[in-house]
């Protein structure tokens, strides 16, 4: 039962590491050699508008991979391709060693890819707890008849998953808003609930689309800590889009830089920082 193993760790986590600042975790000695997801030669266009052209990079198991670039560089499109929402016209995506066919997002979810959105995409009419429980839906098996009775196996199942959801609520420190309808929550908390929903699915690959957009410094620090903890404790691979460069450089193991739909740099934060093409993209043309 992975459920109980994971939960025991999570429950202990917030107290076990009081300094919690996180920055040292992304230390250079981390080594990743198992490729989880490989993107090669992906091109995507809508009508005449080219969103991505011939992009290739890989994401290794266990790393925090940042995707950066100026506005309109194709970062969100890239995430949409990874979780099956857009279908690239060219190129292949290999996930866990299998070349992926054209698929719908729910297949990607079933294979362990979860994500959060740039503009929060929570279920506004449902409570925090229910939102997080939706992350467990794929793991719940009881059929219509048991559900109708809400008794025996269906109820036991509900309780097992409720326990898991409660551990995530503990981990993200949102106990107090457990039963609040999320539409009424402030922005920062909504972002946190959205992360919780993605975590509830116990993903192997977690895609975060600007998890810290519009947050103040304190909220950003909290969110950074959560991301590092998730990566550390659950071993979740994370692909992250973020505009705040200092955070990207601190958090990520490797960075890929997109501009106008093309890849212009790929490497460790230090390599990327020194890359003239990146400096050009960010400073030269005056966007971003």
């Amino acid at each position: 039962m992975t459920v109980t193993e994971v939960s025991a760790e999570t429950a202990a986590q917030p107290n076990a590491e009081p300094e919690g600042d996180g920055a040292p975790t992304a230390a250079p000695e981390r080594v990743f050699d198992e490729v989880l997801l490989e993107i090669s030669g992906v091109s995507l266009s809508f009508g005449g508008v080219v969103a991505l052209s011939d992009v290739s990079f890989d994401i290794c198991k266990g790393e925090i991979r940042a995707i950066i670039g100026p506005n309109g560089a194709g970062k969100s499109s890239m995430l949409n391709v990874i979780n099956g929402f857009y279908h690239p016209q060219q190129g292949t995506i290999t996930y866990k060693g299998n070349v992926r066919k054209k698929m719908r997002p729910h297949r990607a979810a079933a294979e362990g890819i979860a994500r959060t959105f740039q503009n929060i995409a929570l279920f506004r009419g449902m409570s925090t707890l229910d939102n997080i429980m939706t992350g467990r839906l794929l793991k719940m098996r009881r059929g219509l008849l048991w559900q109708a009775l809400y008794w025996g196996p269906a109820r036991d199942e509900e309780i097992v998953h409720r326990e898991f959801a409660e551990h995530i609520i503990d981990f993200l420190e949102i106990e107090a808003i457990r039963k609040t309808v999320v539409g009424q929550l402030p922005y920062g908390l909504q972002k946190r609930v959205e992360l919780g929903r993605a975590l509830a699915a116990e993903p192997e690959l977690l895609l975060l689309d600007e998890p810290m957009a519009g947050m103040n410094v304190e909220e950003k620090e909290d969110m950074s800590r959560f991301i590092i903890d998730v990566n550390d404790e659950f071993g979740t691979t994370i692909a992250l889009i973020e505009h705040d460069m200092s955070i990207v450089m601190d958090l990520s193991d490797r960075v890929v830089v997109l501009d106008y739909g093309r890849k212009i740099a790929d490497g460790t934060p230090d390599q990327v920082r020194a890359n003239p093409a990146v400096i050009e993209a960010y400073l030269g043309v005056g966007h971003g």
Binding site: N83, P105, A108, A109, A110, R115, A121, D130, G135, A201
Partner: peptide
């Protein structure tokens, strides 16, 4: 309810 509130997000969680 997930489909009601936001069907794209519902699809992305499976």
């Amino acid at each position: 309810m997930a489909v009601r509130d936001m069907d794209i997000a519902a699809e992305i969680i499976g």
